[in-house]
Design a protein around this nucleic acid. Structure first.
Length: 836
RNA sequence: GCCCGGGUGGCGGAACGGUAGACGCAGAGGACUCAAAAUCCUCCGCUGGCAACAGCGUGCGAGUUCGAGUCUCGCCCCGGGCACCA
């Protein structure tokens, strides 16, 4: 070795070291996972990205790095870790970009993927690339289509004509969640309503289970809360209000003319309403039906027919936005009445668009005395307002007070016949019982959750594997014919015909019916991207298998996922759909578990200098630039240091230097370290405390405090002129390895180790060394801290008091005999003196 | 309106009910250097004080406690989810 070489070798050059180790890992298969035989399997998953043309966002890298550190830590704990990577590359996002630059996504996506792979490798993420997947690969979406067929087979996929959100700019149906405040999430255009035939999955069948299971999942609380909100359970009752009762009472069945001229079967004119407040039924002074309610026609009297028709037409024209946002109540009287089963009084039936057909029964009993919306409607149209619940300090002029239970004087029912005097919760039960007894309804639970519309009138997605045949109807594509490949077409631009661009490719959609061999036509819609991502975690261990979606044995070995990390923007849809699909597969006997992710942690978001990153602001962090300048190790470690992982933090360019300095000091300490002599006892004590602290923090994802602890140790290690002992440095390198894997490998090799530091294990701390010899405890007099004193950790109270009183600055505050002494070993001493 | 987070120095952030501000950035002073960078050392919440030290201090107001950033109650503000959902 020449002198120059040794000088160069002693300078920490991140770029060459990182290049060297990335090549070495690839050559040696260091990151490979033995999915068949690996012991103590640990599946650590990050949400796979959409491979955008811009390349990896720093937010992606924040997520991947956090997951990677977790995975590397688990590997050093002796687990066989599986940390796969893939791409969620179908969908409107890719397609819109492809349209913009006029290149078919089939050409575009592979380029983006190459760039993403390069960037992820550069960041030193411990991926086994043999299990990489892309949802756009026919070998993947073959099984996405298979999944659709499994749901179809089980009656969980169905087609219905439905009012859908239609974006007039993107010219496609949007899922509810893609509509933000009535506007298209992508282009901001005002969303319209359209009626189309759509495929739906019956996720609502699973609403109760999806909600209940949340209680036993180890997930970020915010994520569970978001799912609870989305599922939106509410308990109440369905109550029947009969028009027939009114007709009998009035003795005039002709009040309700039938448009066909025939009299309706009177017993069909039951109006079922949903309410969460059955206790207020005595205050129900009118009924409201949604404009789309099927009974409206039959109920409307001749003299009201014109105004009702006009009202319904105008409601139908209104887009979802203005219908939901408008606060002023509109509506029209049908001319018909029903009988309130509680009061036996006739009440008018109205139509109003503040009642939604999609929720409950599409009809409500209006209780203007206790509901803000009903109150405002009743006020507008001069309908009667009756108070049926009253608490202290309330009267008829405070009609909207919340019922309360937990006070001395709880709200009680009034004006409610035999139920008057009951507390609200008692009355709810009593009235539901009464209704059930009289067969006028039943207690029910409703959910806000809607069925999942998976149809997309788009090009860039997996074709839904269905064939329509005039003779046989809707025929599933036989599993042996999968995949139904997406054809490469010149013109993939959507139009406003309401059908997918695939409907223009006759050569593709004209097929024989698999059932009768006659002429058939393929379904030309593709499926939602969220279907692609609802099962990718099941595919990873089985990537490469052409015969099954997921191998049974491998799935049992690796799933459910041990640790899942991702952003809370997917807290609801992706996470809920994945859970739903897993439950369906469980019920089909295809997997043994019914929840896919044992533990989920939402990572925070990163802002830049206190502001949200955005292209228009020009403050986007481009990872490549930072890795060029600081190296991947420094960049990774800084990302983990800038704030609590689950909260995110503020990216400040200047602050990276602190982390870089720390790694530089680790490098020079390691190279300076000697094997001669003995390690310093005080340093070793600090080292063992650090091993304990880092070992506690890393599994909790408390990366920022783990790094702070290592920095603290570095400050102790480098105090004074001495060069450190090898034993003082070597375990630290193992602690740093998950954060700065390249540098750790390089030092490890220079220390003479032959195998990757990943397989070196995790240092153990010696509890005796990690314990303190002397502790500094706070001394308070009357609760005010007056000084500190050094004692042994197990010093008695008397010894601590004696030590404290020996300090004149403490003693001078103890003016009288202590009335009490509080002593917490190793923490503090509080000498309580009587107040003056 | 309901449901989750959060509010701590100039900044990012630490803190089992027990010395508030660890760690890092920025800043000030010093060493080394012809000089700069890098590196190393010291200081660094506010007010008063030469100092020792004292008083004040974790969004606001009460409370519980020997002791509250932390627990309870009532508010304010910021971020996110849901929302004419009956």
């Amino acid at each position: 070795m020449t002198d120059t070489a040794s000088v160069a070798a002693d300078t920490y050059d991140a770029t060459s070291i990182e290049r060297k180790w990335q090549a070495r890992w690839e050559r040696d298969g260091t990151n490979h996972t033995d999915v068949q035989a690996g012991v103590r399997p640990y599946y650590t998953l990050m949400m796979f990205p959409y491979p955008s043309a811009e390349g990896l966002h720093v937010g992606n890298l924040f997520a991947f790095t956090g997951n990677d550190i977790h995975g590397r830590f688990q590997r050093q704990q002796g687990h066989t870790v599986f940390e796969p990577f893939g791409y969620d590359a179908f969908g409107i996002h890719s397609e819109n970009y492809a349209l913009k630059i006029g290149v078919n996504p089939m050409q575009l996506i592979p380029r983006n993927i190459d760039n993403f792979r390069r960037q992820v490798k550069r960041a030193g993420i411990m991926i086994d690339w043999r299990y990489e997947l892309s949802t756009t690969d026919p070998s993947y979406y073959k099984w996405t289509q298979w999944l659709f067929l499994q749901l179809f087979k089980r009656g969980l996929a169905y087609k219905k004509r439905a009012a859908v959100n239609w974006c007039p700019v993107d010219k496609t149906v949007l899922a509810n969640e893609q509509v933000i405040a009535g506007e298209c999430e992508r282009c901001g255009a005002k969303v319209e309503q359209r009626l189309l035939e759509q495929w739906f999955f019956r996720i609502t069948d699973y609403a109760g289970r999806l909600l209940e299971n949340l209680d036993r999942l180890d997930w970020s609380e915010s994520t569970k809360a978001a799912q609870r909100n989305w599922i939106g359970r509410s308990e109440g009752a369905e109550i029947v209000f009969r028009v027939q009762d009114y007709l009998e009472l009035a003795g005039a069945a002709t009040v309700i003319p039938e448009s066909t001229g025939e009299l309706p079967a009177p017993d069909l004119i039951d109006i079922r309403v949903f309410t969460t407040r059955p206790d207020t039924i005595f205050g129900a002074t009118y009924l409201v039906l949604a404009p789309e309610h099927p009974l409206v026609d039959r109920l409307t009297t001749d003299d009201q027919r014109t105004s009702v028709a006009e009202y319904r037409a105008s409601a139908a024209k209104k887009d979802i936005v203005s219908r939901k946002v408008t606060k002023e109540k509109t509506g029209v009287f049908t001319g018909a009445y029903a009988i309130n089963p509680a009061t036996s009084q006739p009440i008018p039936i109205w139509v109003a668009d503040y009642v939604l057909m999609e929720y409950g029964t599409g009809a409500i009993m209006a209780v203007p005395g206790h509901d803000e919306r009903d109150f405002s409607f009743a006020t507008t149209f001069g309908l009667p307002i009756v108070r049926v619940v009253a608490g202290h300090g309330e009267n008829e002029h405070t009609p909207l007070a919340e019922p309360y239970e937990d006070s001395e004087d709880p709200a009680r029912l009034v004006n409610s016949g035999p139920f008057s005097g009951l507390k609200v919760s008692e009355a709810k039960h009593a009235i539901v019982d009464w209704i059930e007894e009289h067969q006028r309804g039943r207690g029910v639970t409703n959910y806000r959750l809607h069925d999942w519309c998976i149809s997309r009138q788009r090009y860039w997605g997996p074709p839904i594997p269905i064939i329509y045949c005039d003779k046989c109807g809707t025929v599933p594509v036989p599993e042996t014919d999968l995949p139904v490949e997406l054809p490469e077409v010149e013109d993939f631009r959507p139009d406003d015909s309401g059908v997918s661009p695939l409907a223009r490719v006759e050569s593709w959609y004209r097929v024989k019916c698999p059932s009768c061999g006659g002429m058939g036509r393929r379904e030309t819609d593709v499926s939602d991207t969220f279907l692609d991502s609802s099962w990718y975690f099941l595919r990873y261990p089985s990537v490469g298998r052409d015969d099954v979606a997921f191998d049974a044995a491998l799935t049992e070995k690796w799933l459910p996922v041990d640790s899942y990390i991702g952003g809370n923007e997917h807290a609801v849809l992706h996470m809920l759909y994945s859970r739903f699909i897993t439950m369906v597969l469980h019920d089909a006997g295809l997997v043994s578990f019914d929840e896919p992710f044992i533990r989920f942690r939402a990572h925070g978001t990163i802002v830049r200098d206190g502001a949200k990153m955005s292209k228009s602001r020009g403050n986007v962090v481009v990872p490549d630039e930072y890795i060029d300048r600081w190296g991947a190790d420094s960049f990774r470690t800084y990302l983990m240091f800038l704030g609590p992982y689950e909260e995110g933090g503020d990216f400040q360019d200047k602050s990276i230097s602190g982390v870089k300095r720390f790694l530089d000091r680790l490098w020079s300490s390691a190279l300076d370290s000697r094997r001669t002599g003995k390690p310093d006892v005080a340093v070793m004590r600090k080292l063992h405390k650090t091993i304990r602290k880092v070992g506690e923090d890393v599994p909790k994802l408390s990366y920022n405090t783990a790094i702070a602890a290592m920095m603290e140790y570095m400050n102790v290690l480098r105090a004074g002129e001495r060069s450190p002992h090898r034993d003082e440095v070597e375990p630290l390198v193992q602690l740093v390895a998950p954060f700065a894997p390249h540098m750790a490998e390089e030092i490890w090799e220079r220390f003479g180790h032959k195998r990757s530091i990943l397989d070196s294990g995790w240092p153990e701390f010696d509890p005796d060394l990690a314990a303190d010899e002397l502790v500094t405890i706070a001394v308070q007099v009357g609760g005010k801290t007056r000084g500190t004193v050094q004692v042994t950790p197990d010093a008695t109270q008397d010894a601590a008091v004696a030590a404290a009183l020996a300090d004149p600055n403490i003693a001078r505050f103890v003016t009288t005999d202590p009335s009490r002494v509080v002593y917490v070993k190793g923490r503090l001493l509080n000498i309580v003196v009587a107040a003056k």
